[in-house]
Amino acid sequence: MRDLHLSLNQTQRVRLQAALDQLESYAASTAAAAASVTVADSIPVNHEDNILKGHGTSDLDGQVVATLCGVVERVNKLVYVRALRSRYKPEVGDIIVGRVIEIAPKRWRLEINFSQDAVLMLSSMNLPDGIQRRRTAVDELNMRSIFVENDVICAEVRGFQHDGSLQLQARSQKYGKLEKGQLLTVPPYLVKRRKQHFHHLDQYNVDLIVGCNGFVWVGEHVETSEKESTLLSDKPSGKQETDNSVPLETRRHICRIANAVRLLSVIGLTLTVESVTETVEASLRSNIEINEMLGSEFYVQTVEREAQRRASMVRKRS
């Protein structure tokens, strides 16, 4: 168990074990369980239909051998191993959350849980004044007025340069600096690529951004269209800091949602808006304090709820 040290009592231990066994039994009925491999396991393939070896495989004496621990996936002729715990593997168009670690000439360097730092060029993001123009030397000198070191940023993967470095872009109002919230890091395999990664949780007035790289942002809701106008109007007056502190209620919501994300990632359940909101609602229903969400009782309850959810899914299918 990573991250969380629980002291379970006897009943909780039995309940947890029962729920985990249940989860395992549902997984065992699917194909994925049978296809789990570890490093140096040979993957059975039919060599007649000249297969293509994908990620996580290598060739050893004519056998296809896994080089990672994970699950074997087959798409037509392609055979590859989907790794579970590993660093983020970027794909073009992914929405990611990152942290600025360095300002270099015409670019920011971001830590995004990839094997290298990502690069956000000054030219591949909208200027705060919203005007489309060539970036001048003055803009370059004013880069710190946009992002400084340790800022948390949301951006999109633009692609790989020919030298192998990863380029990002932030060409829309929805991308950019994230403020007034919490950044959480979860293993990237828990985040699935979906149509929507920005979520506005209306009832809590909170934004939830689930980055494909496993960085999750929980923060106060900002109106993207409004943001543009406030940026223009507020900048000269410079009173941005003072007039909009986050109300206590919203802060509580942020903490509650953040703890839900933490809990799900510690258990190892997939992170989606649905699972997060469901966990938050369950904690509210059973009157669990924010700090108790990471305690043993709610942990066991969450695993049990997940087991029930999968049970109902299996029933629906059959």
Binding site: L20, L23, E24, Y26, A27, A28, T30, A32, A33, S36, V37, T38, V39, A40, D41, C69, G70, V71, L84, R85, Y189, L190, I267, G268, L269, T270, E306, R310
Partner: peptide, 18 residues
């Protein structure tokens, strides 16, 4: 070591679900 790794992989996959 392979037994441990396989068990760990299966556990991660089963918890993650489909």
């Amino acid at each position: 070591i392979r037994e441990i790794l396989l068990e760990n992989t299966k556990q991660l996959e089963s918890r993650r679900g489909s």
